[in-house]
Simulated assay, not measured.
Amino acid sequence: MPPREGGTPPPPGRGNDELRLYGWNAVQALFASRPQALRKLYLVEALIPRMQPVLKWCVANRVGYRVVEEGDLNKLAATTHHEGVVADVLRAPMLELGEWLQALPAGKPVLALWLDGVGNPHNFGAILRSAAHFGVAGLLLPPGATLALSGAAARVAEGGAEAVPLVRLPAVPQAMSQLREAGFGLAATLVDGGSDLFASEVPARLVYVMGAEGEGMDRELAQACDQQVSIPGTGAVESLNVASATAVLLSHWYARQSR
């Protein structure tokens, strides 16, 4: 074990291909699925016993790690919600739509999410967590989308970020055409005006198209989908937020496939 070092470690130069993760489950999921992506690890002394497998891997593979104070981690993560561990890692590569479609299992039910304007990192993290729980095969991001995995989103996802790949879509007409050729139906999710979700049949291969947190989905995009669905409720509130709505939508599809 290296000696404790005083002072805040300087942040390494991180480009677009690197990400600063924090939170126990986020770092553990990264280590379980892509240990070779780990570039530097920072942790508090109290976590050394629990982190032994990771630390031994770091030593064997010449990946640096440092035992630091809680306050140092607060600065590195820019939050107190780091749970005692911070890691600099390589981002998972984003897939192209054709590449993702080719890798899907033939003849099997597949669920995906098309995120049209979702931008809040905490909502994104919550969506990733629900997506991992219900077995979503990919998050599809439209052309020009600025959404990318952040440390905050990965922490909220509680490990789900490593389970669900991000997929880059081509132009909307081409993306829809490719998805339909692969047997997918597209369901626009509307705050109101769509068919009752719980009375709707959903195909085994389905893409739910989710709108932005504030303004909702682009109406032209919604009309271009094969069906439009809404989640019924009491009306006591205007709507669910996008992350909560996603969990309801995914559970509906999952339950239908589990019959």
Rank of each mutant, 00 (worst) to 15 (best):
L76D: 08
E96C: 08
G193S: 05
E70M: 06
P9Q: 11
P173R: 03
R180W: 01
N25L: 14
G15L: 01
E162G: 09
E201Q: 13
L166D: 09
G13D: 13
D17C: 10
A199M: 13
D196M: 06
V118D: 04
R91Y: 02
A222L: 11
P165Y: 04
R20I: 14
S130V: 02
Y42N: 04
L97S: 08
A187D: 07
A137G: 09
D196V: 06
W24A: 11
M210T: 12
Q36Y: 06
G23P: 03
P232E: 02
A152P: 01
K40G: 10
V118M: 02
G138T: 11
R219L: 13
P105R: 04
V110R: 09
A92I: 08
V44R: 09
G119C: 09
D196F: 03
P12T: 11
E181I: 04
Q178Y: 00
G13V: 13
G119D: 13
V59E: 15
V229H: 07
D192R: 14
G151L: 09
L19N: 06
A77N: 10
L101A: 11
D17Y: 04
L47V: 06
L76M: 12
V191N: 01
E158M: 15
A243E: 04
R129T: 05
G193H: 07
A37I: 05
C58G: 06
N25V: 05
P10Y: 07
L128V: 08
A132P: 04
L47E: 07
V242R: 03
L90C: 11
R50H: 13
V191E: 14
N74Y: 00
P12F: 00
A26G: 07
Q178K: 13
P11G: 09
A103G: 05
S195F: 00
A204H: 12
E5Q: 15
F31W: 15
H122M: 03
R168C: 10
G84R: 02
L128D: 05
T80R: 14
L250T: 06
D88K: 05
D116T: 01
E220T: 12
V89F: 02
K108T: 15
